[in-house]
Each structure stands twice: as structure tokens, then as C-alpha cells.
Design a protein around this nucleic acid. Structure first.
Lengths: 264, 264
DNA sequence: CAGGCTATAATGTATAGTCATATACTCGAC
DNA sequence: GTCGAGTATATGACTATACATTATAGCCTG
């Protein structure tokens, strides 16, 4: 009921803003899953009663931002997020290990359902307590522990996680399939390994570790919080910054060859 | 004379690609300094022999990417970089300390001119040795050492640095004034403090530290390499990711220096 | 000279088309 | 059934134009 609201933070004034907000919202909220085809320009023209240029410019912008992929004749599709977040490259741990040419394995150390505590409520931004799944996983590179993962999953946002054992797929990858587009916030710091973490990682207590905490949320609420603890010299985070990719738009268009899910 | 060249990595095929590449190149290379006014749409139309829509779309895209700021009637201007790199927010250390409400001071511990060694040549991507300025600085928050900065400046790229004492302005800030737009690559890791670093920072050796290494380059060559060593729990890096800013384009246009709400 | 008004110059939004290009799909030849 | 040619379709590039918005610069008045 937003009738005659004060003029602060007024809604979209222009057609293109409305289209952008609508589409971005649908993608970020997960209503349009990754790979899903989005309406063609003609349909959007009709829907928003505007010209083709207008919708096209919005779609082009979304494509540049990496949210969608456009293919001639086929249409426009919701992009796959991991190809996007290259600004701060925190890939799948499995991929990281593979890049080191070491066999990857992983195991769940601890799995526990409970309600969110008060401090966690801060993270998940809800007033009431939320059902959570608490997971501790250990990722191995060969015989050596590579990363300790301490994760909380908001079961209200992802109820299916409650019955998932994560025996096959690590929770990170598992979640990425379900909640494809998301807003992420990282906090990165160095810390000495706590005794328990050190034991799990088979390193001496007080060894310097790189600690990455990431809160992942969709538009509505936080979905998962994860703390990744990497033994000091094993891991390095790389982030590079280039304002606009030097690749041609043509290169940008058709990445991710095979994947073509079709959902409504 | 590009007659029938093989189609690999051919130059810009389209007008808009050429315009984009040209303008981005001029900004990134520093030929157009921050704040500098860029040609108005009419001039670009004439220069590239195309319609206004075409140049406008390019400029709009550059504006969305944060490289330029557009103001009605006034024209388009090269943006100020620090307002941009919000993806991985590594601000001026002075600003960091100010945010903690502590008095900031800093001093140069070591200043030394020399030629680049072989491993550094790797960083700076030149074949021959390059004249370099080596600097060690200590940044203080109140009475406490806050960050140790170990920096190399490519004197071939920034000759003025040779005669600069950096007594007033820290090298990071000093460089930012000179080389406004740049490509940056960060490597972030946790490491135990080396004895010398520990002594400078007045912490126990082997204390976990957050080490940030950043190579900054313009299109031609690396300009500076810096290693920032933060005592473990003193510092946290925050990076948040949002595909397209939720703000309206209007908000985006006139960003004032006092903006940038912290995220979380 | 302060304060306000206006003309103007720049961007901002949007329309309505044309032609180009890539490609999913169909359909026919084999 | 498979391969290949042709066709339909959706995006891509671009033009030409119109009107809106807004900040600057200069003018005009008191």
C-alpha cells in the first residue's frame, strides 16, 4: 500500500528503471532461476508499453553486468552467477584444489539443527529466531587439510537443506545450485587458529590463518553464513579490478556452452 | 593496413567498440586525468561520424561503470577513481584510521633508490631493469602501529617520485593524485609477522598478520607494488557485491564525496 | 552588486524505424 | 535416421528525431 508516500526514495520514475528493477529483482530473488529464459523483447515491449530500444537498452545493461546472457534467435537467459563474481574470485573449493593438481575430497565433521542465537540474528536480520542448519566441513587437498568450513544455513530460506546430508556435494556448491543469484558480503582477516580449528586442520594452534566470512543473501533475507579458515600459507585470495572488460561484447555473450535449463 | 588479416582478436568491429576502447584507453592511461572534461556528444558524433545515440550509449555505459561522471549542461568528466573501487574497498589508510576515531600519523622508515631485481621484473613486466624507489612506511593509529607499508615505485612510470620525500603525504595518496585511474590486482593472505616487520609494528614475531599485496598498473606498465601488513585482529577487509546498484541512475550521477554508507 | 530570470547548452529518456547477423528449427534429400 | 539447406526469429548495431530536464552563464532589474 504505497499510496502517496513522501517523495524520498521514490519508486522508478522512468520506464527503463522499472524494467531494470523488475527483472533484476526477479533474478536476484531467485524467482527466475539460472538458465531460465526471460521474456523476449517483443513481450517486454508489450508488457511495459514501450519501444524496443528501451527494453533492449535495459537488457544490454543487464548483460554487461553479467546478470543475463543474450543469444540471437534463442533469447535472453538468466546468467550463471559464478561466471560473474570475478571481481573477488572465491571459487568453489573443489576448483581451487583442482587448480593445485591435488586430489580433492571433503567430509562433514558436524551437522546440527538448531535455532539462531541472538548474535546470529544480527547476521540474518530477523527479529525472531530462525531454524538453522549448522555444518562443519573439512576440505582436503590430497592428504592435507585445505580448508575448514563452518557454515550456517537459514532453513527458512532453504528448507530443502534440512534433509540434505551433503555427502556428495559440498554445501557451497549445493547452495549455489539452489540460490543462483545473490548478494554477497565478505569479511577477510588474519587470525590465529583456535585450538579446535587447528586440530581439524592438523596445524599447530596459533598458526596464522586466512579467515573469510561471507554472508550471502537474496533480496529478502540472509541465506547462509560461512566462515572459511585456510591455513596461512596454503591460500591466497586474488582480486583484480578492471573497470570494463577489455574483451569484446561478442566474447562476453556466449560463454557457458552447454547449460541450457528451461524453466518457466 | 589491415587488409584481410586472420580473424583472431581483430580490432573493434563496431563503432561503439571503437569509441569505448578509445575513451577507456585515454582514461586508464592517464592521458585524460581525473576531473578532466571529455568531448561532448556532438564532438564525438563528428569525430566518429555516427549518430548521437551511439556515442550516448557508450558514455552511458562508461558512466555506469563509474569511469566518467555526466552532468547536464556541463558535460562529461573523467571520474575520480577512489569513489569507484567499492568492490574491494581498500581505502586510504588515513581514512581507515580516522574511521576508528584515532589520531593518524605516519612516518617513512626507509627510502632507497635502486634498480629492479629479477623477481621484481616479473611484477613490473619489463625486460630490462627499471629504476625503482623502495619505501618502508609505518602508519600509526594513536600510539599504536597500524600498518606497515612496503612499497616499490616504478620511477620510469612516475619520475617525479624520485625527488619526493613523502613527508607530508603518504605514498599511496601521493600516487593516487598522479595516476588517477588504474588497474589493480590484489593478493591477500595471512602470514606470520617476520622479525623485522614485527619489530616495526611492535608485535610479537609470528603474530598472524593480514598481508595485502597490490600491483597497480596503467595500460602500459606496472606503476607501483605495495605490501601492506596489518597486525592480525586490527584489520578486516570488507568487500560486498551487488550486481547493479539498487540506487537510481539519478543517485548515481552526482555522487558526493560524503557518500558511501558502510555495508554491514 | 545581489538576487532572480532567461536563454542555452548539454545530457536524459524515449520512439520508430532499417539493416545485419547469428541460430534454432523445420523440412526435404539421401 | 542423419545431414544439410533454407527459413523464421530474436538479438545487435545504428540512425534520425523529438521532447524533457537541468545546470550554467549571462543578462536584467532593483
Amino acid at each position: 500500500m504505497r499510496t502517496s508516500r513522501p517523495r524520498t526514495k521514490q519508486g522508478p520514475r522512468f520506464i527503463h528503471e522499472r524494467i531494470l528493477a523488475d527483472i533484476q529483482g526477479k533474478i536476484l530473488s531467485g524467482r527466475w532461476a539460472a538458465g531460465c529464459r526471460i521474456p523476449i523483447e517483443q513481450e517486454l515491449m508489450k508488457q511495459y508499453q514501450c519501444s524496443r530500444m528501451t527494453v533492449s537498452k535495459v537488457l544490454t545493461r543487464l548483460a554487461h553486468a553479467g546478470l543475463i546472457v543474450r543469444r540471437r534467435k534463442a533469447g535472453s537467459f538468466v546468467g550463471h552467477p559464478h561466471s560473474q563474481s570475478a571481481v573477488l574470485d572465491i571459487p568453489d573449493i573443489k576448483v581451487e584444489v583442482a587448480a593445485l593438481d591435488l586430489p580433492y575430497s571433503y567430509g562433514v565433521l558436524h551437522r546440527h539443527k538448531r535455532r539462531s542465537s541472538r548474535e546470529e540474528r544480527e547476521i540474518f536480520g530477523k527479529d525472531g529466531a530462525v531454524p538453522m542448519l549448522e555444518l562443519d566441513c573439512l576440505h582436503m587437498a590430497g592428504e592435507q587439510p585445505f580448508c575448514l568450513e563452518q557454515r550456517l544455513i537459514n532453513l527458512q530460506a532453504v528448507p530443502e537443506a534440512a534433509s540434505e546430508t551433503f555427502a556428495e556435494l559440498a554445501p557451497g556448491a549445493w547452495l549455489r545450485r539452489r540460490v543462483p543469484w545473490m548478494l554477497a558480503e565478505h569479511r577477510i582477516r588474519a587470525a590465529a587458529a583456535e585450538p579446535e580449528a587447528a586440530a581439524a586442520l592438523k596445524i599447530k594452534p596459533r598458526t596464522p590463518c586466512l579467515v573469510i566470512e561471507r554472508t550471502t543473501r537474496d533480496v529478502a533475507s540472509a541465506i547462509t553464513f560461512v566462515r572459511l579458515i585456510y591455513p596461512g600459507n596454503l591460500h591466497e585470495l586474488v582480486a583484480s579490478f578492471m573497470p570494463i572488460a577489455a574483451v569484446s561484447d561478442a566474447d562476453l555473450r556466449d560463454r557457458s556452452p552447454a547449460s541450457r535449463a528451461r524453466s518457466g
